[in-house]
């Protein structure tokens, strides 16, 4: 396994602290006295498993996406170049799916960020029963998404006996036929409910990492709570919001569970993941579905990039 020169360890001991081997800003390697070979041996199993389980299938997906292949007619399988992509872009279901994905992901991320920031601020200050309140807030994150979708659909959003309409009634507002009239809203609300705790946790970690000295200095200087929040806390929170948004949107782009369970893709909720599922496992169009898979990966990359850029802009402008 080892390919390094056996003298490495010995020279290092002799020379005292060894030079950092290829330090990177993300992960500066720590000093150690053993040979590189052992480290590689420790890393390889995980690397191989990861490559076999994720990269190899993706490469095969790319290959499939260039095939004309329906499982009902396996004999007709042939290489088709970019036929599937041409078909995907020319039929309407792709664009409406892309729109559904962007609308659902975008709305959920925005709502979860706003609510997450609010919860984080509220839960950061000391009050009686704070530990219990935090436990209650993180619970939706722990709830199985399939269970969450079912409970929301039948127990919360149901038109005549659901709790949401009952609550609206208490406030004197009219009932809404959630499941039939606004399926997109139901999916977004359930996802927001499940992702807000995740955002809250990360943002809370951000709030707690603020330097108390700076906050005190600001209040001594006579800055009000709101001013302190906008000019010190928010800029400090930028990287935390960025990470939460990035991780959240990457998960949400692939969203499948509530769509499959609550709406079955009706009413503008047919996300890319659900469309792929339909084409592959209902329509048995392997080639076309594989093309959706490749496109989903590309969209993930784009959304992650755009999310980061936009946020960066909002925060830098907000602090000036």
């Amino acid at each position: 396994m080892s390919t390094t020169t056996p003298s490495t360890a010995a020279t290092r001991i002799a020379d005292g602290p060894p030079p950092q081997p290829l330090p990177g800003p993300a992960a500066p390697p720590r000093r150690g006295l053993r040979r590189l070979g052992v480290s590689r041996a420790l890393l390889w199993p995980a690397l191989i498993v990861s490559i076999v389980l994720t990269q190899v299938p993706f490469v095969i997906t790319i290959y499939y996406s260039l095939q004309s292949w329906n499982l009902l007619r396996p004999a007709d399988q042939r290489f088709a170049w970019f036929e599937n992509y041409a078909r995907v872009f020319s039929n309407g279901s792709f664009l409406s799916s892309l729109l559904a994905t962007v609308v659902i992901t975008g709305s959920t991320v925005v709502l979860s960020t706003v609510l997450g920031l609010l919860f984080a601020v509220l839960l950061d200050r000391p009050f009686r029963g704070r530990a219990l309140a935090r436990t209650m807030i993180i619970t939706p994150f722990l709830i199985m998404p399939a269970a969450a979708a079912l409970i929301w659909k039948w127990s919360m959003f149901e038109a005549s006996t659901g709790m949401v309409n009952w609550g609206l009634g208490l406030l004197g507002l009219p009932s809404v036929a959630w499941n039939t009239d606004v399926p997109v809203a139901t999916v977004i609300l359930v996802l927001t409910w499940q992702y807000t705790p995740f955002f809250t946790l990360i943002l809370l970690a951000g709030l707690q990492s603020q330097s108390r000295d700076i906050l005190e200095a600001s209040s001594v200087d006579g800055a009000g709570a709101w001013r302190t929040f906008t000019s010190i806390t928010l800029p400090h929170m930028r990287q935390y919001v960025e990470i939460a948004v990035l991780l959240g949107s990457i998960q949400l782009v692939q969203v499948f569970d509530p769509v499959a369970i609550m709406t079955r893709g009706s009413g503008g909720t047919k996300t890319l993941a659900y469309l792929l599922y339909e084409r592959a496992f209902v329509g048995l169009e392997v080639g076309e579905a594989a093309a959706y898979g490749v496109i989903t990966v590309l969209v993930t990359i784009v959304i992650a990039t755009v999310a980061l850029r936009t946020l960066f802009k909002v925060f830098t402008e907000g602090t000036r």
Binding site: S50, L53, T54, Q55, V56, P57, F58, I60, T61, Y64, I250, V253, Q254, L272, A273, L276, Y277, A280, F281, V286, A289, A290, Y292, G293, V294, T296, V297, T300, A304
Partner: peptide, 14 residues
Amino acid sequence: TRFMPVAASIIPVY
């Protein structure tokens, strides 16, 4: 690999 959608590999895996 964590960021790669499961959708990217489900068809070959199946």
